[in-house]
Simulated scan of single mutants.
Amino acid sequence: MLTKSPKRKSVNLSIDVDILAEAKALNVNVSRAADAGIAEAISKRKAELWLQENREAIEENNRYFEEHGLPFSEYRGF
């Protein structure tokens, strides 16, 4: 069974020459490494944005639990 690979698009990137040389010397697939690095950067940025968008609600929850404690804490065995 063949799996369909994701669509690819050629782009121009500027990469540090020393990094590129080392990647080639180590047989690193630069395109795949760039994909992985960009995917990681996207994931981190989405997490940052989510925290920014939800900071007020998170802080309000923290204030509530500081004032009232955790629900059912009297039943916790730890």
Rank of each mutant, 00 (worst) to 15 (best):
R32N: 08
R8M: 15
L13D: 00
R32E: 11
A36T: 13
G37S: 06
E48F: 11
K7F: 12
L70R: 02
A47E: 07
R55N: 08
F65T: 05
D16G: 03
N62I: 01
E66P: 00
S10T: 12
G69R: 06
S73F: 00
A21P: 00
E53Y: 01
A23P: 00
K44C: 08
S5F: 12
K7E: 14
W50E: 08
A57D: 03
S43D: 15
A33K: 06
N61H: 09
E53L: 10
M1K: 05
I58E: 10
E74R: 02
V11D: 05
N29S: 10
Y75A: 09
L20G: 04
E56L: 15
T3I: 13
S10F: 07
A34E: 03
S5P: 00
K9C: 02
K4P: 01
I19F: 06
K24I: 07
E74C: 06
G69T: 02
K46A: 12
R76P: 01
L70E: 00
G77F: 05
D16I: 03
P71E: 02
L70F: 02
A25W: 07
G37N: 07
N62G: 03
E56Q: 12
L70G: 01
R63D: 15
N54T: 10
S14I: 14
L70S: 01
L51A: 03
E22L: 15
A39F: 06
K7N: 10
I15M: 09
A21R: 12
I38V: 15
R45N: 14
S5C: 04
L13I: 15
M1T: 13
K7H: 09
S73D: 04
R32Q: 13
A41K: 08
S14E: 06
S14Q: 09
S73Q: 02
R8K: 14
K44D: 09
A39Q: 15
A21D: 05
E40S: 13
G37A: 08
M1A: 13
